[in-house]
Design a protein around this nucleic acid. Structure first.
Lengths: 335, 335
DNA sequence: GTGAAAGCGCTAACAA
DNA sequence: TTGTTAGCGCTTTCAC
């Protein structure tokens, strides 16, 4: 096999200039049928592929977008939320001919020390877990790369973002459980320091208010999103003889844990005690069919964020804006 | 904020030449202490970040590696295998200062039609599900980019790859179940057209041979890796009054489905009937504690593949080689 | 020790 | 319609 073909090689072989080759390939100029064919033929024979890097350098555009992947979202088994979102992002990018660069730098302490890290070869970025990602965020801003956040940022002005309406989500879930006849809903909320947690609690409280009920604080527990945590919290409640007739969890993993604990204690789920999760359509396939879910559609969020970002990059959208997705209730019947 | 700084800007501000700036930053040349400081100061003041694209063009190296993501591995809820591997890849790359470009092209039919797709801006690639990925594989070979396969390819010569020993995996599992007193193991294997399936069956058979037993073909079923499939297969076996006292599944998702079906039929798992899965340490956290698993360590495979690829890229390794990981038995006690 | 200048492979403004 | 040429921002040889 010969050396790698460049635009120069192709031009020579076709007996034309470099620019002609470039224009034939990009279609940005009218080229006579004959030359067009000569060029394409030469390109094919030489197995020519335009060098994306050279193209990026000259066009100041890579058609790559970056996704910041915080460490704490990885190595955490069962983090469907993240991966489901990733799938949404990938699908949208795919459709528009963009690629995704996973960016994990900025995670290690020494990265912060390196203010001269090279500029990212991307046209824009998608951020999640915004609050603490200042390093990456600042970097994008500094490089004046457009970005879209997933989740509501601290300062909402000047920022494009997508999020879900968590208050509605837990309100819907609570109402659903009351509708099924529950009176005391054991609520396994997310850890206190998450903004989300407040919103979830608000929905739960609203669900009570609607029926003129007060929230019994003893019914509210916390779990760190993992199955074990849901198991632990439920187990603890059972051991403490807490009285409840339904369980609402901050996510589906936690719900799975709750179910495990209940079944271990010989309590029928969902017949005796219904268990609800929130978020993550992605997890649907693998969780127990016993879970009823309020879906956040992380997939949709990812997909929307990516589409929005591309619009921003292509300057089809200038004004900062945000999209808040409505949750939907998903009742899965046992197969 | 001023215009984006380039090496030229920095050079002017520091009163030196571009090359000097470049050398200060790369450390490839001795530079007097004084000039060094002047340059760094200027760079800092201008908030300079070397343009990675220009650098890549001139060095013919991007420090990005590509991972081909087949469509069928996405949008399939609960495909931990893939994501777990991804985590391994990311961690290894991170450690070596490489980034990961997710490549989804080649999935759509029209992509195959576009032989002039631009050259990938990567130094090498990681492939999985090799058999049918000829498009991407060919492309990498054509561009003479090094690559590492995950899973054993059709032709093993000239190819770097990592894989797991599936025969041992199912042998270990089978033996474990016999060791627990099982006599008739219901085996939910993967679909027939997967090479893997033969290996799994071989291990299962070996486990029987060891005890001088024959395999009862009625005990072997198939499932397409999903929880529902495991549920379905088990349900069918129960309905058919198949007699068995243990279940071995081709993966943990399927095992979860089997457990659901058994419990629905009021059969205690694992006390009455133990259920085993294979593969995917990642899934450990979210599956039922009732599952005993033979771990393929997809994480390890990803991690190894990435490390290997980097060695190849950096020419620290020239001779094609492969690594076969041994599975390990993981017995999870109920928390 | 430092600088000038020639690339890396492509695009696009300017000429013809 | 097509060709010439000046960049894009960096690295690195060659010269001083």
């Amino acid at each position: 096999m010969q050396e790698k073909a460049t635009i120069e090689t192709v031009a020579r072989r076709a007996g034309v200039s470099k620019s002609t080759v470039s224009y034939v390939l990009s279609g940005k100029r009218k080229i006579s049928r004959e030359i067009q064919e000569r060029v394409l033929k030469a390109a094919r024979e030489l197995n020519y592929r335009p060098n994306q890097i050279a193209r990026s350098l000259s066009q100041q555009e890579t058609r790559i977008i970056g996704l910041y992947v915080p460490h704490r979202n990885r190595r955490r088994s069962g983090d469907f939320y993240f991966y489901s979102m990733l799938e949404g992002v990938l699908d949208s990018l795919d459709a528009e001919g963009y690629r995704l660069l996973l960016n994990t730098s900025g995670n290690r302490p020494d990265d912060a020390e390196d203010p001269l890290g090279t500029a990212l070869p991307i046209d824009g970025g998608i951020l999640m877990n915004l609050r603490k990602d200042h390093a990456y965020l600042n970097r994008l801003q500094e490089e004046r790369k457009p970005f879209v956040a997933i989740g509501t940022p601290d300062t909402t002005d000047e920022v494009f973002y997508v999020d879900v309406d968590l208050v509605s989500a837990s309100f819907l879930a609570t109402r659903h459980l009351f509708g099924r006849g529950a009176r005391r809903i054991f609520f396994i909320n997310s850890p206190e320091d998450f903004i989300q947690s407040r919103q979830r609690l608000e929905g739960y409280t609203l669900g009570h208010s609607e029926l003129g009920l007060e929230v019994d604080k003893a019914l509210v527990a916390r779990a760190d999103f993992k199955t074990e945590d849901g198991y632990g919290a439920t187990r603890k409640a059972l051991d403490a003889k807490l009285s409840f007739d339904a369980v609402l969890c901050c996510n589906d993993n936690v719900a799975l844990g709750a179910i495990n604990a209940l079944r271990e204690a010989q309590i029928a789920v969902p017949d005796k005690i219904p268990v609800m999760g929130m978020g993550g359509s992605a997890i649907g396939g693998i969780t127990s069919p016993a879970i009823t879910t309020v879906d956040f559609s992380p997939y949709d969020m990812g997909s929307l964020a990516a589409k929005l970002l591309i619009e921003v990059i292509q300057r089809k959208r200038i004004q900062p804006c945000h999209t808040i997705l409505s949750p939907k209730l998903i009742i899965r019947e046992t197969a």
